[in-house]
Amino acid sequence: MIKIVFSGYGLVFYFWSTKGTMEQKSTLKEIEERFDKDVERFSNLETGQQTTLDAAFNMELITDGIAAAMPHPKKILDIGCGAGNYPVKLLSKITSNPDITLVDLSRPMLDKAVERIQPLTTGAITTHQGDFRTAPLKENSYDAIIATAVLHHLREDADWETAFTKCFKLLQPGGSFWIFDLVAQDHPAMQQLLFTKHYGHYLSSLKDETYRDHVFAYIEKEDSPRSVLYQTSLLRKVGFKTVELLHKNLCFASFAAFK
C-alpha cells in the first residue's frame, strides 16, 4: 500500500491501495527469514527496537498498563513476541507467575524468548511458530494479549478484521489487548510530513541517510500499516467495549482495548 517516489529531497511516500502492490509485499516466509537473522537486535530492554520511536517508553507504558488493569494475570499471550522483551519487562512488575504463550514466525526468536522468560515465572511457557491467526489457541482464555510491531504485517481489510476478531475471542471477559505499532496517517500531506520527513530525520540521526533509505525500503516491502482511527474503530466493531489511546509520536502509536 505504499508507493515510493524519488525526488531531489530523498524518499517521498504516498499510501495507495491496489491489488498489484499487495501482491508485491513480502511473504510470511520472507519475513520469517529476515527475523531469524535479527534476534540480538530485539533482545535489548534498555532501547527496545530502535527503529521504532519511543520503544523503551512504550514498553514501560504497556507493561505498567497491564499490571494496573490486571495485577495478578494468570495467562498472557504475546503475538509476534520477538525475543520476549515485553513478557520479561511485565514479569518484573507483577507478583503472580502467569502462564505465557508466545507466537512468532521465527523459531530463533521464540527460542531466545523462552531462554529469557523461563527463569522469571513458574508458570508454563508455550510456543507456537507461525501466523497467530491460524495458531491453535483456546478462546476465552487470556487475561491480556500483547501485539507490538506485528500488526503492520497484515494486508487487506479482511486480514485486519480477522485478526482483531480472533484476539477478541481469545480474551476472557474483562481481558485486554495491548498494541504498539507503526501507523499510517489518513491524510497524504500528514503522511509525508510525519513519516517521510520527521521519521526519516529520526532514522538518519541513528546512522545516516543510507540507513534511513534501507529502513524505508523494507517498510515498503513488508508492511501495510493502518491509521490509529482505522484500528480503534475496528476494535470497537469486533466487540471491544473500551479503547484507550495511550501514546502517539509521529507514525508510531500505542493503544489498549478492553473486552
Score class of each variant (00 low, 15 high):
Thr52Met: 07
Ile66Trp: 03
Phe13Arg: 13
Lys112His: 14
Ile125Asp: 03
Lys29Met: 07
Thr95Val: 09
Cys81Leu: 04
Tyr9Gln: 13
Asp99Gly: 07
Val88Asn: 00
Ala69Leu: 13
Leu53Ala: 09
Leu77Asp: 11
Asp38Arg: 01
Asn58Ala: 02
Met109Ala: 00
Ser43Lys: 04
Gly48Arg: 01
Ile79Trp: 00
Arg34Thr: 13
Ser92Gly: 08
Thr47His: 04
Arg34Ser: 14
Val88Glu: 07
Thr21Met: 07
Glu23Tyr: 01
Ser96Asn: 09
Ile76Arg: 10
Ile79Gln: 03
Leu110Phe: 06
Leu45Gln: 05
Tyr86Arg: 08
Asn97Trp: 02
Pro108Asp: 06
Ile31Arg: 04
Thr51Cys: 08
Met70Val: 15
Asp54Leu: 13
Ser106Ala: 13
Ala113Arg: 01
Arg41Glu: 06
Leu120Met: 14
Ile100Met: 05
Ser26Met: 06
Phe13Met: 10
Glu46Gln: 15
Glu115Val: 04
Asp54Cys: 09
Ile94Leu: 08
Ser106Cys: 02
Ala113Asn: 02
Ser43His: 03
Gly20His: 06
Lys25Glu: 11
Ser17Gly: 06
Gln118Glu: 15
Asp38Asn: 02
Leu28Glu: 11
Asn97His: 15
Ser92Leu: 12
Pro73Asn: 04
Gly8Arg: 12
Met59Thr: 15
Lys93Gly: 07
Pro98Cys: 08
Leu110Cys: 11
Phe35Gln: 12
Arg34Pro: 01
Thr27Cys: 07
Trp16Pro: 10
Ala83Arg: 04
Glu23Val: 01
Leu45Lys: 00
Glu60Trp: 00
Tyr86Gly: 10
Arg34His: 13
Ala83Trp: 01
Asn58Glu: 03
Leu77Cys: 06
Pro98Tyr: 10
Gln50Pro: 05
Ser17Asn: 14
Pro87Asn: 09
Ser96Gly: 02
Asp99Trp: 01
Gly10Glu: 12
Ala68His: 06
Asp104Lys: 12
Thr63Trp: 04
Ala124Lys: 05
Ile94Ser: 03
Leu91Gln: 03
Pro98Gly: 09
Ser26Phe: 04
Lys89Gly: 08
Thr21Lys: 07
Val39Ile: 14
